[in-house]
Nucleic acid binder design. Structure first.
Length: 726
DNA sequence: AAATCAACGCTTTTT
DNA sequence: GCGTTGATTT
């Protein structure tokens, strides 16, 4: 080691890192691909690389672009950078793909072909809009599913394709979908709205079609850092590649084994393509895991080894083997939940924190049984997912008023609030407006203005006039106010508050509270986080923020509570104690993914992600019988359990041997009805304390009656009793 | 205009 | 089985 290298190794940037991390962080200025296994310090490497570039390579913070997928990741990165570099991180562009692309569109709205006050539709808005559009086009009778049309449109946008790029292949269905896409585009442009996929595609096309602008950003952002690279979809990948050009220096971090978003356009292949597109890419593998015990890692490694065409990585740890992975099979989902709650109670009794515990499941519907048990036992918990703040109906109503104030031609917002609270503008009147708007190719706002003087009944015209006046007055009254005062004024003047106050139920009160909270959100909002360019009014910025960052779900009502979430939303998190529930074939892997190899491999990666969330202790549970959508179904333990090395597992109950044949061989269904957990009536069993006996009956839950030769009949709980089959 | 009823669908989710 | 949604009732 030379003196020079030694001084590098001692620097605060490199000192806390292991060899591989150090190699990545201090790599020469060339394209770098970091293959970072779960828990190997991926984010840390990204942060330290930025610090390295700024402090060692003397790169200006202004020439750095750091991209993440979620706002959470972006916020975290920003925070860690500020702490590490003790600088104002505003100099850096750190954000999500959508956030950064949006920022570009705000700056270059004209070149992007947008109006200055363009606003963003979330998936829900988009669905409504498409539904409305289908009706207008005379296809509103249910032959077309708005979700399907949306899927078609977004899928193509994610691949960078416009209607003109699509051929109908002489398929009438496809031809129709392309036509809908075309109409949808026109409609969006008319009302000044963009959907999420459009943000990315527009930003891409902005660069593609404007060489001067592209040249400017290429010159500015030579260093492009991307987190979770395996999750990039085609347009995101192309956006990065376009920006990097020939001289850019992308530094991307990802893990092909944790790619779980293929179904929403992510392409795992981008990891390989990166190496082809950027000649001389330095590939660094981070394989030392700092999170999990040896047993957990060994099981996860063995599982993921069943996938083909991996980039190759084997996690290892310095840590002890720790506990084996415990596998439990319940009679049904309530039995399963009872078992899980029992273990949690133990954990808490022994001084463990509730917030260190995560219950993971494949689909949201599975949370209910756990929630019921948790409530019953008085254990605080938090469920991830569900409606977020800015997605709530009453909040969207309020935002619709604000949007209309900002852009009168926003038809979806117009329709949303024109009669909310009710002001005598019925469906009939709105129908007339729509007709006029379509015939004259104008917005509903313009149609309303025109029809007030002629074409409507006196009553309808009056009511409509009142609404138009209201919006105009609100917009005028609010002009010189601070943002939060604007919001406050609009929820009052629109009568939304009064409307919900009339509802004296808990729901109504919650809505009023949420509306008040919206004012607080506006008060705390810093427009500079959206863009620091001149000429964007705070309201427009706030509305964009509301769409781009839907906010938290329930907030943190409880500090120390058990965490419930899907396997997908667990990605990136870690917990000392993890339960993977519903480990049954058909549920996980999900039956809709089982058929094709790609689908099954993605499920396996999901299982890998789940298992590697666990730091100390991991349980995998399943139910023999499960009520799904109201019907009882019988299942087999997940094939994924069978893919893990038996010596790393421990079956909680004695009756199922953890061996490949048992997990792989499907047993007949009729047999399952007479037996439970491999035990059958009349079966001779051995108990450590009570000696030999014979099974008399199966009780509810995991209870079983055994007539012991020496001590008589006992009822045992199979969760605790270790019965050995004889 | 609110209340009630029938129909629907149901993997995963961020932006 | 349950929650949402759209249509129909009162």
């Amino acid at each position: 080691m030379t003196d020079h290298e030694r001084s590098d190794a001692d620097s605060p940037i490199l000192a806390p890192l292991n060899d591989a991390q150090r190699e990545a962080v201090s790599a020469p200025l060339k394209p770098v691909l970091v293959l970072a296994g779960a828990g190997s310090g991926k984010t840390r490497v990204l942060i330290h690389r930025i610090a390295w570039l700024i402090e060692r390579e003397r790169v200006s913070p202004h020439s750095l672009l750091a991209v993440t997928f979620t706002n959470k990741a972006a916020t975290e990165m920003r925070g860690r950078l500020e702490r590490m570099l003790s600088m104002d991180s505003r100099a850096l562009w750190v954000g999500t793909f959508h956030g950064l692309a949006h920022r570009l569109l705000r700056i270059h709205w004209r070149e992007a072909g947008l109006i200055q006050t363009f606003q963003i539709m979330d998936g829900e808005d988009q669905k409504r809009f498409i539904k409305r559009l289908l009706k207008t086009l005379g296809h509103g009778d249910g032959e077309w599913d708005p979700k399907e049309v949306r899927g078609f449109i977004n899928g193509n946008k994610n691949e960078g394709r416009r209607p003109d790029d699509l051929a109908d292949d002489h398929d009438p269905t496809r031809r129709q979908l392309i036509q809908f896409y075309r109409e949808y585009e026109t409609a969006c442009n008319r009302v000044g709205l963009v959907d999420f996929a459009e943000i990315l595609l527009r930003a891409y096309e902005l660069w593609k079609n404007n060489p001067t602008i592209l040249a400017h950003y290429r010159q500015r952002f030579r260093h492009i850092l991307v987190d979770e690279f395996q999750d990039t979809n085609t347009i995101q990948y192309n956006w990065i590649r376009l920006l990097a050009g020939r001289d850019g220096l992308p530094f991307v971090v990802g893990d092909d084994d944790q790619s779980i978003y293929r179904w929403r356009g992510a392409r795992i292949e981008h990891l390989r393509q990166f190496q082809r597109d950027f000649a001389g890419t330095r590939v660094v593998r981070l394989e030392q895991n700092y999170r999990s015990t040896g047993n957990i890692l060994a099981a996860a490694n063995a599982l993921i080894a069943n996938n083909t065409s991996r980039m190759g990585k084997n996690l290892w740890t310095d840590d002890r083997d720790g506990d084996p992975i415990r596998v439990f099979g319940g009679f049904n989902e309530r039995d399963e939940a009872q078992f899980v709650l029992g273990r949690i109670a133990e954990w808490v009794d022994q001084g463990g924190a509730r917030s260190d515990v995560a219950i993971l499941y494949r689909s949201n519907a599975q949370s209910r049984v756990f929630e019921e048990r948790l409530i019953g036992m008085g254990i605080p918990y938090r469920v991830y997912g569900g409606l977020r703040f800015f997605e709530r109906a009453e909040i969207k109503d309020a935002l619709a008023y604000l949007r209309l104030m900002s852009n009168r031609h926003d038809d979806p917002s117009f329709e949303r609030v024109v009669n909310l609270p009710t002001r005598g503008i019925g469906a009939r009147t709105v129908e007339v407006l729509r007709h006029y708007a379509r015939d004259n190719d104008t917005s509903l706002w313009v149609a309303a203005g025109a029809l007030i003087s002629d074409g409507l009944s006196k009553r309808a015209a009056n009511a409509l006039h009142g609404f138009l006046q209201l919006i105009e007055t609100m917009a005028r009254d609010v002009r010189d106010l601070d943002l939060h005062e604007q919001v406050d004024h609009s929820i009052e003047a629109s009568q939304l508050i009064r409307h919900h106050e009339k509802d004296r139920t808990e729901k109504g009160e919650a809505r009023v509270e949420n509306l008040r909270e919206l004012v607080s959100a506006a008060r705390g909002f810093d427009p500079d986080t959206v863009t620091d360019e001149e000429g964007i009014d705070p309201l427009t910025a706030f509305l964009a923020h509301a769409s781009l960052e839907a906010g938290e779900g329930q907030g943190d009502a409880w500090d120390d509570c058990v965490q419930l979430m899907t396997l997908h939303s667990a990605k990136g998190l870690e917990f000392p104690l993890v339960f993977m529930s519903g480990m049954e074939d058909g549920l996980f892997p999900h039956r809709r993914s089982i058929a094709d190899v790609d689908g099954l491999e993605e499920e396996r990666r999901l299982c890998y992600v789940g298992a590697t969330r666990a730091m100390e202790r991991l349980y995998m549970t399943y139910a023999e019988q499960r009520r799904l959508h109201g019907v009882d179904t019988f299942g087999q333990p997940s094939r994924f359990i069978g893919e893990m090395p038996p010596e790393r597992l421990e079956e909680i109950r004695p009756h199922i041997k953890v061996s490949r044949p048992v997990f792989r061989a499907p047993s007949s269904r009729s047999k399952l009805e007479e037996t439970s957990h491999g035990l059958r009536l009349g079966q001779r069993v051995m108990h450590a304390k009570f000696g030999e006996g014979v099974i008399l009956d199966f009780g509810g839950r995991s209870r079983v009656q055994v007539n012991f030769d020496n001590v008589g009949t006992k009822e045992l709980d199979l969760t605790y009793a270790r019965l050995e089959m004889l």
